[in-house]
Each structure stands twice: as structure tokens, then as C-alpha cells.
Design a protein around this nucleic acid. Structure first.
Length: 217
DNA sequence: ATCCCGAGGG
DNA sequence: CCCTCTGGAT
């Protein structure tokens, strides 16, 4: 297992690889960020950004989305995938915001997760990016990277990954580290053909060393 | 553990 | 063709 000290060394290198990493979902308000983030589940941010202009043009806020027709919402987000569930969730979330939260986003992880379609990962993203509240959203990229670097057992849950990262990374860097790790996963340590051959943190990476050292897959 | 589910990439 | 994408609810 990679030690905390060694992980932080690797993380510092990853910071330098993508110095300007940040959230890439397009939004004008915290509410729109919430909706975009719900829509981003099992979808690319590019795909979400392609669909949200039409969605937010028609329904820019919780008040309008709460009373929108499901079929109208579906037609605007269909290209994203999982659109039945997501249309239902974002309308219900908007309605809940209006009825139970005075039309404003709760700045609290537990309350945010009461909204349909909002789990731990989405809550962390919204609180971190909209309000700067410390948190580490573990998505498919962070989960993969944590396991490749071997800071957690291969069978660890996303919650275990989050806890370990929170223990290893200083709190004031949680939000930025999250973005740097996302970029690293998205553009370098990819799921399919990771660029281990040209990786600055190869010397820290169990997965990469075994992959390059071992026989062809 | 399984379902949802279209677009893009290899 | 198969795999993956800033997951969540059952």
C-alpha cells in the first residue's frame, strides 16, 4: 500500500501536470450547478454542457423547473442518457427546494442529499464548487486512481476511498485536489488506455509498473 | 447486485 | 463491436 507521504509526493506532481484544473460544468447559479451535477452521473461533462443551455434557457431556476412538463425536460436532456430518471429527479429536486427549502440550496451535505438524484458525490461537488465547503467527491476517476496508486485495497468502497483521501490530504486542499485528480484521470490516467509509458508518477504507481513490466494484456 | 441509457472513443 | 462517462436508488 502506498504511504501517505509517498501519495502526497505523487499528488504534488499531479498538481503540476494540470495546474488549472477546475470544474467544467457550465452554470450561472448554484441551482444550475446542482442540476448540471445531477445530470452528470454516468455521463461526460461535455455531453451535459451540450444539453444544459436549452434546459436552463427554458427553466433557469427552481421555480420554473418545479412546474415543468416531464416530457419537455426529457426532450432537452435525452442526449445525456438515463434521461427518464434524471428528468424525474431534477423536477422533484426543484419542487423540494421550493416547498421545503424556501427556494434556496441548503449548504449542508446531509440536507442536500435529501434531494432526489443527489448522493454523496453530487453533494460534495456542489458544496465545494458553489460555496467552497471542503469535501472530496469520489467519482469513477478518483476511485480508479486511488486503486491504481494502491492507497486503498482494490475492493474498497467509494466511501473508503473518500475517507482515505480526507486523511491523506490537508482539508484546505480537498476541493482543489479533487479537480486535479479528475483531470489526471480524464486526460492521462484514463480508464481504457492509460498513458503509463509517459507518466510522471509511474514510480509511485503499482498498477503502472505491473502493467509495463508484465506481459501484454 | 442490478437497473437506468445515449454519445463518443478505440 | 465493446467500454466508459464527475452515480443514485432500489
Amino acid at each position: 500500500m502506498l504511504s501517505k507521504k509517498r501519495f502526497l509526493e505523487a499528488l504534488a506532481i499531479i498538481f503540476e501536470m494540470f495546474p488549472e484544473a477546475k470544474g467544467e460544468l457550465h452554470s450561472k447559479t448554484p441551482f444550475q450547478l446542482l442540476i448540471a451535477t445531477i445530470l452528470s452521473a454516468q455521463a461526460t461533462d461535455k455531453g451535459v454542457n451540450k444539453a444544459t443551455p436549452a434546459l436552463f434557457s427554458a427553466y433557469p431556476d427552481a421555480k420554473s423547473l418545479a412546474v415543468a412538463d416531464i416530457s419537455s425536460i426529457e426532450s432537452k436532456i435525452k442526449s445525456i442518457g438515463l434521461f427518464h430518471t434524471k428528468a424525474k429527479n431534477i423536477k422533484a429536486a426543484a419542487k423540494m427546494l421550493m416547498e421545503d427549502f424556501d427556494g434556496e440550496l441548503p449548504k449542508d451535505k446531509v440536507l442536500l442529499q435529501k434531494l432526489p438524484g443527489v448522493g454523496r458525490k453530487t453533494a460534495n461537488v456542489v458544496l465545494g464548487d458553489a460555496y467552497g465547503i471542503p469535501g472530496i467527491a469520489v467519482d469513477t476517476h478518483l476511485d480508479r486512481i486511488a486503486k491504481r496508486l494502491n492507497i486503498v485495497p482494490q475492493k474498497a468502497s467509494v466511501l473508503d476511498v473518500e475517507k482515505t483521501l480526507m486523511r491523506y490530504i490537508p482539508e484546505e486542499k480537498w476541493v482543489t485536489a479533487h479537480h486535479h485528480l479528475i483531470f489526471f484521470g480524464r486526460y492521462h490516467c484514463t480508464a481504457k488506455n492509460p498513458n503509463c509509458e509517459n507518466c510522471p508518477v509511474l514510480s509511485y504507481c503499482k498498477f503502472g509498473q505491473e502493467r509495463l513490466g508484465g506481459f501484454d494484456a
